[in-house]
């Protein structure tokens, strides 16, 4: 505070000096993260009754991995998330490359706005609409319909980081590649794509997590044999929360955190390398 001699006394609007700021912040973080910490702790509880702690044990994890239904649901989740994230990221990359070119075409601004729309539309709306659409086409509900639904709502999440990356790129670099005898195909593979990779990876991870976590779309578009982990956990909780649920939830949290950390790590690493020299 005293480091800067030119700093005047705090003015009333300065957020740093609002009364009760520290308390409110502490309450906020406790409210958000304490239940999660308790859930993780209880997943290591030996006692069958969820709320009473007796001793440390890995029994619930062992039971979860032995449960064929859980393993099946986890497998479904991973299949859906993998296919949906890879497909949506591929489509989003192509879209971002086209939208980033500096020519104008009819409806470009409109298309740009519509890309982000699925993020703001309540998920239930497209889920129900897609359900009715697939039903009228006579589709059999299952993994296939869930994957199609997931690809659609994952596209904007994959698109945004890729687009941001493209906008941060030096527009002269494509010209420099062409000037150095790279034809458009070579310029794409050797110059554009390598620089886009961090954006693509962020998009991929984001889409994967969003898909892994999804309940509404999966619930509406799923069928026999397409139960995912969120759907399975929902079913379990209806008959009472068991420590087994805590164990599965903790594992999902671990997976999500690892993926986000990975994408942050990759993004930051590239930023450092590409920062102003």
């Amino acid at each position: 505070m005293r480091l800067n001699p030119f700093r005047r006394r705090a003015f009333p609007g300065d957020a740093r000096h609002w009364p009760g700021l520290f308390t409110a912040t502490a309450v906020f973080f406790a409210y958000v993260y304490l239940p999660i910490l308790i859930l993780i702790a209880l997943s290591f509880n030996e006692n069958r009754t969820v709320t009473v702690w007796t001793a440390f044990s890995l029994d619930w994890y062992r039971m979860a991995f032995a449960n064929r239904d859980i393993v099946g649901a986890a497998t479904n989740s991973l299949i859906i998330a993998s296919v949906a994230s890879v497909s949506s990221t591929t489509l989003a990359t192509l879209a971002a490359l086209r939208m980033a070119s500096n020519d104008r075409f009819l409806g470009k601004t409109g298309i740009n706005a519509v890309f982000a729309l699925p993020i703001t539309v309540p998920e239930i709306v497209p889920a129900v609409a897609t359900l009715m659409f697939f039903a009228s086409l006579g589709f059999t509900f299952g993994l296939g319909t869930v994957i199609i639904g997931h690809i659609v709502f994952c596209i904007p999440f994959a698109y945004l980081p890729i687009r941001a990356r493209l906008e941060g790129m030096d527009p002269n670099i494509g010209e420099a590649a062409a000037d150095l005898y790279a034809n458009p195909v070579q310029a794409f593979w050797r110059v554009t794509l390598p620089q886009l990779i961090p954006g693509i990876l962020s998009g991929l991870v984001l889409a994967f997590i969003i898909s892994l976590d999804d309940f509404v779309t999966t619930f509406f578009l799923g069928g026999a044999g397409s139960t995912t982990l969120p759907i399975y956990i929902f079913g379990l909780v209806r008959t009472g929360v068991t420590p087994e649920v805590n164990a599965i939830s903790s594992l999902m949290l671990l997976l999500s955190l690892s993926l986000v950390s990975l994408s942050l790590f990759l993004g930051r690493d590239q930023n450092r390398k590409n920062g102003p020299g």
């Binding site: 670099i173 010209e175 420099a176 000037d179 150095l180 390598p194 620089q195 590409n274």
Partner: peptide, 27 residues
């Protein structure tokens, strides 16, 4: 441009940031 026997030094250099100095030169 890729069929013309001329090369350009750009105002902002437009170097390839994902490559080393030597990789840029040999491109």
């Amino acid at each position: 441009p890729y069929q013309r026997p001329v090369n350009t030094v750009f105002q902002n250099y437009a170097l390839f940031p994902h490559m080393t100095v030597a990789q840029n030169i040999s491109f």
